[in-house]
């Protein structure tokens, strides 16, 4: 079964950019996209993604709030929060919410490192994932 990844960002351009990176890093993964926190929650319930990438800055529910919510409802899903504001406070808050902080614009090595780590975590809970 293919690994599923959910990309949450209100900017389509940002989602396109993350998708492009994923195509080269994990071409066999199935990608889902959500443009808001609400959409993300619905898709998470319906598609059961294995990994989630969140934009920090979204109207309504922010990426950090969403990360905290997801940690409650789906504690086993590895989550990364992506933000262009590399502030200690945001990095710390992301970690508090159990999420990995990734700097925007997202680079291939940074995303690759997170995906490797996520896969390592998944192999514990879901040994079928390589």
């Amino acid at each position: 079964m293919a690994t599923k990844i959910l990309i949450v960002d209100d900017s389509k351009l940002a989602r396109m950019s993350v998708s492009k990176l994923l195509t080269s890093l994990r071409p066999d993964w199935t990608r889902f996209e959500a443009a808001s926190a609400d959409e993300a929650i619905i898709l998470t319930g319906r598609e059961h993604p294995d990994v989630i990438l969140l934009d920090f800055n979204m109207p309504g529910t922010s990426g950090l709030e969403l990360a905290a919510q997801l940690r409650q409802s789906h504690p086993h899903i590895p989550v990364a929060v992506i933000s262009a504001n590399i502030q200690v406070e945001i990095v710390e808050r992301a970690q508090e919410a159990g999420a990995t902080f990734l700097a925007k614009p997202l680079t291939s090595p940074a995303l690759a490192a997170f995906l490797d780590e996520a896969q390592a975590r998944l192999s514990v809970t879901r040994p079928s994932v390589r």
Binding site: D10, S11, N57, A84, P105
Partner: peptide, 13 residues
């Protein structure tokens, strides 16, 4: 703020 921030993100991409 969010609009400028997202513009910045777009510029970065």
């Amino acid at each position: 703020f969010r609009a400028f921030h997202t513009l910045k993100g777009a510029a970065g991409i």
